[in-house]
Amino acid sequence: MKDYISLMRVKHYIKNILIFFPLVFSGNLFNVKLLEKSFLAFIAFSLAASLVYILNDIHDCEKDKLHPTKCQRPIASGRVSKKEAYCLSTMLLILVILINELLVGTKVTLLALILFYIFINIIYSMGGIKDLPIWDLAILTLGYVIRVYYGANTIDVEVSIWMSSTVIFMATFLGLGKRRNEIKFQGSKTRKVLSKYTVGFLDKNMYVCLGMTLASYTLWCKEMAIQSNSTLCWILCVGLALLICMRYSMLVEREQEGDPISVLFGDKEIIILVFVWGCIMLLTLYWL
């Protein structure tokens, strides 16, 4: 069972918290019906993401055997056979479709979004896009944006352009940082696309995207402040976001792999900063 959980990359489900953003920022967090729908959407998307990870591991099995850390993955190490992985991925696809049917019935938009997510990731892994510089980042970023719109369509709310912009630039920043550290600490031989990047290029564009992230988030907070009487609290949220980004950047400079999940959960200070930011944001949205 442990190998199957590892194969499904359960720890990466944290990325799917983006599905709750439209719920939270539309002021509907305590709407039980919408909260239940968002939770089901979270489960559906998490299973879809696991499906993508499994198919990617099947496709990259031989390459992963040569990688210093990926060789320990369940399929590459032989702990889970390809046949078992295909069976699990089929079950996950069926569950994703059933949960979407439960969420929206005959409405096709939600199912189309999640199937599109699965499709672009299959093309990414098996169609060679993962070996194309810039395009590999574009597909990964699009996956984060789809999460937000999937959550919004689940509860029928609109997505702020500044929310979308923040997610786009932050996702690109994270992707650039991960590639930067892969090249710096593991070399460019572990993935074909890495040979087409340079550390200098990744560094410059990382911080361009970080600056755009903070600018977009500031405008997003301004938009929220206009709708409330708590301008000072939103300014405080911007300040905390700056500290979080600075702390994350400092960690990425030292982190051997630059994996966002490992960085986030591996540092107490950044966890505390994110927790305080979240508390102030929720307090401002729902009680002030």
Rank of each mutant, 00 (worst) to 15 (best):
Y13F: 15
L176W: 07
V238L: 08
L264E: 04
E158C: 10
T106Y: 08
Y150W: 03
F169C: 14
A76V: 05
C71V: 13
H67F: 10
M281E: 13
D136L: 00
R79F: 09
L111M: 08
L34G: 08
N100K: 04
H59P: 01
Y53Q: 11
K178W: 11
S262A: 15
D57K: 02
P22F: 07
I272Q: 14
Y117Q: 06
K15A: 14
A225I: 04
L214R: 04
C245T: 13
A48F: 15
S188A: 08
F201E: 12
N205S: 03
S216M: 10
V52I: 03
W135V: 14
L176N: 07
L132Y: 02
G151L: 08
V24I: 15
I270T: 11
K33P: 00
I155R: 03
V193T: 12
V52N: 01
A215K: 03
V108P: 01
N31Q: 05
I114G: 04
I183L: 05
N56T: 10
K204V: 13
M8T: 12
F173P: 06
I280E: 00
I244R: 05
D57T: 00
A49N: 01
L29S: 11
I54H: 07
I261M: 12
L92R: 02
L282V: 04
L110V: 07
N28S: 07
M246F: 15
F275Q: 07
V252Q: 13
K204W: 09
K107M: 02
L210Q: 10
K82L: 13
W234F: 15
I43Y: 09
D203R: 15
V199C: 09
L288Y: 11
Q72T: 12
T231Y: 03
S89C: 09
I271K: 15
I139P: 05
I58M: 11
V193A: 05
T69P: 00
K65P: 08
L283I: 06
A41D: 07
R179N: 12
L202E: 08
G266S: 12
V208I: 15
A48Y: 06
Q256D: 12
D156N: 15
Q186V: 00
G177F: 09
G128Q: 05
L95C: 15
N31V: 06
I226F: 12
Y207N: 10
N121Y: 06
P74T: 01
C87I: 11
Y248V: 07
K178H: 13
M281V: 12
G266T: 06
K130G: 00
L264I: 09
F116D: 00
S89Q: 06
K107D: 14
D57N: 01
N229R: 13
L35T: 02
I99K: 02
K33S: 14
K192S: 10
P22R: 04
V108L: 02
D156F: 13
I271C: 14
I122D: 05
G151I: 12
F45N: 10
S262G: 14
L55T: 10
F21R: 02
M206V: 07
